[in-house]
């Protein structure tokens, strides 16, 4: 039996909006650790890893490990029926082919339950080793989203280069070129507005902007985003989910032939 009660139900709504463009069907895995998901996009170029730790739920009961296959557009349809201030409870019985989403209004005067059919999904689980990155950039998530959106009106790919001068986002297209440099800036009023660059050595990598733009659907989950770069690894674009966990997007680079 599985029963997860999340007082801040809007978090689950935001998580679904963050990943449903990238991934169509996925297995949600429940264990004593928490509620997690790992899935690749259909082209196997990007991977999303989500973790919502059990401690972040008001009530978390998971008697045994359970993997629930869901169509993310259908989950999103269900969760969009929950109010932004609703408490969301996810329930499933062992061996059941359905999952129930229960929505309670904050003052308990409205209770709704939506039952959704589960599906069998053959998914590959990948081992993601811990790695040392050549450069780690932390910046406001809204700023990163703005840069990806702006550059995608000029070109299809972004070159992200980190040097001691800062982080540079560059693109080129038929109409011209664009370069946006963000310098390290720790002297801001609020820590979430800072741009912090930890560089072991300079790094420059090329990525498809289409995927980067898709990752920025997670912007409402966190004020900051962390971009970790190494020349021999996929980039990691991480949005921390306050007190609960994270959503991490991995994207394989484009390389010169």
């Amino acid at each position: 039996m599985l029963e997860l009660r999340l007082v801040q139900g809007s978090l689950l709504k935001k998580v679904l909006e963050a990943i449903r463009e990238l991934v169509t069907d996925a297995n949600f895995d429940c264990s004593a650790t928490g509620f997690s998901l790992q899935a690749m996009d259909s082209s196997h170029v990007a991977l999303v890893a989500l973790l919502l730790r059990s401690e972040g739920f008001e009530h978390y009961r998971c008697d045994r490990n359970l993997s629930m296959g869901m169509n993310l557009n259908n989950v999103s349809k269900m969760l969009r029926c929950a109010g932004n201030n609703d408490i969301i409870t996810v329930k499933a019985d062992d061996g059941s082919d359905t999952v129930t989403f229960m929505f309670e209004s904050p003052n308990q005067d409205k209770i709704a339950d939506f039952e959704m059919k589960l599906m069998d999904i053959d998914s590959e689980h990948l081992g993601i080793p811990d790695a040392e990155y050549q450069a780690i950039v932390r910046m406001p998530s809204s700023e990163f989203a703005r840069i990806c959106k702006d550059l995608s009106s000029i070109g299809d790919t972004v070159i992200i280069s980190v040097t001691k001068e800062g982080v540079k986002f560059s693109t080129a297209g038929d109409i011209g070129t664009a370069n946006i440099v963000c310098r390290q800036n720790k002297t801001v009023d609020k820590p979430e507005e800072a741009t912090i660059i930890e560089m072991q050595e300079p790094v420059s990598l090329t990525f498809a902007l289409r995927y980067m733009n898709s990752f920025t659907k997670a912007t409402p989950l966190s004020e900051t985003v962390t971009i970790s770069l190494s020349s021999d690894l996929p980039v990691v674009v991480e949005y921390k989910i306050a007190e609960m966990g994270y959503i991490r997007f991995y994207l394989a680079p484009k390389i010169e032939e």
């Binding site: 590959e124 689980h125 990948l126 090329t206 394989a252 032939e257």
Partner: peptide
């Protein structure tokens, strides 16, 4: 010209 790498080139199946 650039070629797009795949995730499976970096991470292995468990």
């Amino acid at each position: 010209t650039c070629i797009q790498r795949r995730i499976l080139g970096y991470f292995s199946r468990t």
